[in-house]
Amino acid sequence: MITLENVHKKYSNDVAIGPVSISIPAGGITALVGPNGAGKSTLLTMVGRLMGIDEGTISISGFDVASTASKDLAKIVSILRQENHFVTRLTVRQLVGFGRFPHSKGRLSAADELIVSRSIDFLDLGALEARYLDELSGGQRQRAYVAMVLAQDTEYVLLDEPLNNLDMAHSVQMMAHLRRAAEELGRTIVIVLHDINFAGHYADHICAVKHGKVVEFGTPAEIMRDDVLTRVFETPVTVIDGPRGPLAVYY
């Protein structure tokens, strides 16, 4: 369980995050949704200790993010940001191998290699593992990054807009992979999503953020409603019954 208590971060007089108090249950996929600039990514980066907080506490399965050593947290939680650019030239497999660093400290054992192979296969990157990252398409590269955080073998996986720049097919494929990671590998995945319909279909819980505060939290059935979505996104939204569940129409 990820618990945020009274989390507060101030940027300027009128831009602030929080106070946020929320518990994200263990297991399944929790989607963070909300309008631009609402603070979804910021919340995620604070949970992933990439950014400090001014007040309050964040704990991940009982460990306080601020006081637990970073190297210990790296075995419990992994975070993947949107922009990933490396100056070094890496093959897919080398990148995924870095995911084992918290456990192996750079000395990969046979067991580590096995886990690396497994997460590469899990994301169907087997045929590409010897390729360099700069030889891959955007979608393939995104999968390689996800394979790295899966190889980190953490209970909690935080992903910041992993569907960014992916086309329809690759988005669907990525979400299906994440769904399987949650179900087959028992990971708790917290993901920032832009498309409310993806959240409605693939997530177990939806957390709506607006003006730096959590305004709604519930199952897709509770969130995928005209009045709730209209209020969150400040634009008229109609939810209709689609062939695969509720569908938000906003244009």
Binding site: R49, S70, D72, K75, I79, N84, F98, F101, P102
Partner: peptide, 20 residues
């Protein structure tokens, strides 16, 4: 050297991997 390898992946990735 092994830690420098991780640092070369950038600030956020290296923090994620438990590097101070």
């Amino acid at each position: 050297a092994r830690r420098l390898n991780v640092v070369s992946l950038g600030k956020e990735t290296s923090i994620n991997l438990g590097i101070n």
